[in-house]
């Protein structure tokens, strides 16, 4: 009798659960079957009418029915919750191709990027970065660099003068002298900064631009060390496949002097419009510090030797980032700056 009743309840519960299409209905079904006044509870209440010896058996049957209904309720609940979440998410679908939000960060100037790259390379080689004055004394810009009063190089560089003694430096090389005069040897330094020459503004000239000077002084330094250092620099800056060429040249403050060309990074040296068909691009001047320059700065040229180099920062940036007009560098149009 009870057995039949239980089977009936189980069947009814199954149906009710199946028909419960939301959590509310499902909960009502739970109350109706398993609640204090629920059907199964009613059955248990009827246990007093059951013969004592049958009670454990009936109890077991009721428990089985309860477990089955609970399990079905649990499953249905999970199913309905999941469906509700899916539905909610479906309603929340967004167009992921809409524009990004929030202000984007600003950009570093290409000169700065090139400079930081060079600083990274040379500080890695143990060079210190030092600064020298832009408004400079004639002595440091010229005389101490072996360019005496009447030297034609003084004209070549089209100097801005403040007065007879002070000028705007035409090269960062004066920073070498300041460093040497400190008397702390050996020296490994690079010195970036602004330099000035009396050139009208055009696509390749600016009256104000940047150079990076390099100086190494030690007891045993050779021209081959200069070649090695700058070869490594060129490879790090322009890529491992870069080839370099050192050509004899003349600078008053170095002897021997050289200019360094790198293989064109656009065509790899075959010759193209970028390198004007040469396959090579000149990027810096360098040389062994002239003994007279060492001497003037109080360094014994018989004991110490050194090399120096000077790089035009804009030149590197223009080449590396393929910028075809130097004026862009000082105009600061954000459409230019934001490309770096």
């Amino acid at each position: 009798m009870i057995n039949e009743k239980l089977l009936e309840i189980r069947e009814e519960a199954r149906k009710r659960i199946e028909e419960s299409l939301d959590l509310e209905k499902l909960n009502a079904a739970r109350v109706d079957f398993l609640g204090k006044k629920g059907e199964l509870t009613q059955v248990l209440k009827g246990m007093k009418d059951v013969a004592a010896e049958d009670r454990p058996k009936v109890g077991q049957m009721v428990n089985e029915a309860r477990e089955e209904i609970e399990k079905a309720l649990e499953e249905a609940k999970r199913r309905l919750e999941s469906a509700a979440m899916e539905a909610a998410m479906a309603a929340e679908t967004i167009d992921v191709t809409l524009p990004a939000k929030g202000r984007l960060s600003g950009h570093r100037h290409p000169n700065q990027i090139a400079l930081e790259e060079m600083e990274r390379i040379f500080t890695g080689l143990g060079y210190e970065v030092v600064e020298g004055p832009e408004v400079e004394k004639d002595y440091y810009n010229f005389e101490a660099l072996n360019i005496p009063a009447d030297h034609p190089a003084k004209d070549e560089q089209d100097t801005f003068y403040i007065n007879g003694e002070m000028l705007l430096r035409t090269q960062t090389s004066g920073a070498q002298v300041h460093e040497m005069e400190k008397g702390r040897l050996p020296i490994r330094m690079i010195s970036p900064g602004r330099v000035y020459r009396s050139d009208e503004v055009d696509a390749t000239h600016s009256p104000c631009f940047h150079q990076v000077e390099g100086l190494l002084i030690d007891e045993k330094v050779t021209f081959s060390d200069l070649k090695g250092t700058l070869t490594q620099f060129a490879k790090e800056l322009f890529g491992e496949d870069t080839k370099v060429k050192f050509r004899p040249h003349h600078f008053p403050f170095t002897e021997p002097s050289a200019e360094m060309d790198v293989s064109c990074f656009k065509c790899g040296g075959k010759g193209c419009r970028f390198c004007k068909g040469e396959g090579w691009i000149e990027i810096l001047g360098c040389g062994m510090v002239h003994p007279h320059v060492l001497e003037m700065s109080g360094i014994d040229p018989l004991k110490y030797k050194g090399f120096a180099f000077g790089v035009g920062l804009e030149r590197i940036a223009l080449l590396k980032y393929e910028i075809d007009d130097m004026r862009l560098m000082y105009e600061n149009d954000v459409r230019f700056l934001s490309q770096f």
Partner: peptide
């Protein structure tokens, strides 16, 4: 903060 770097003439 969204600022881009400029370089301008010092004279």
């Amino acid at each position: 903060a969204g600022f881009s770097q400029c370089m301008t003439y010092s004279m």
